[in-house]
Simulated scan of single mutants.
Amino acid sequence: MGSEQQPDDRARYQRDRDWIGYALHELPAGVLWGPHGATAEQCAELLDGLDEFARVCDRLGLSDHAEFIEACRWHFEHYSHYLSRRRHFADYGTYVRDRHGPMSISPPPTPDWPCSR
Results as ranks from 00 to 15, higher is better:
Ser106Asn: 13
Ala66Lys: 09
Phe53Trp: 05
Asp58Arg: 05
Arg99Lys: 15
Glu41Lys: 02
His88Thr: 13
Glu41Pro: 04
Leu27Phe: 04
Trp19Gln: 00
Glu26His: 04
Asp58Leu: 05
Pro102Phe: 15
Ala54Arg: 02
Ala11Gly: 10
Pro102His: 15
Tyr13Leu: 08
Pro102Glu: 15
His65Ser: 04
Asp18Arg: 04
Arg73Ala: 12
Ala40His: 06
Glu45Leu: 10
Arg99His: 15
Glu67Gly: 06
Asp18Pro: 01
Gln42Met: 02
Trp113Phe: 08
Phe76Glu: 04
Asp8Tyr: 07
Pro7Glu: 08
Cys57Lys: 00
Pro109Lys: 08
Glu26Gly: 01
Leu24Arg: 00
Ser106Val: 14
Cys115Ala: 12
Pro109Gly: 10
Pro35Thr: 08
Arg86Ala: 14
His25Trp: 02
Asp9Gln: 01
Ala71Cys: 09
His36Tyr: 09
Ala29Gln: 02
Cys72Asn: 06
Glu41Arg: 03
Arg17Gln: 08
Gln6Glu: 12
Arg87Asp: 14
Val56Trp: 06
Gly93Arg: 09
Asp8Asn: 11
Val31Leu: 00
Ala71Glu: 13
Tyr95Ser: 05
Gly2Trp: 01
Ala90Tyr: 12
Thr94Met: 07
Pro114Tyr: 12
His81Asn: 14
Thr39Glu: 06
Trp113Lys: 00
Val96Lys: 02
Gly93Leu: 08
Pro107Ala: 15
Gln14Pro: 05
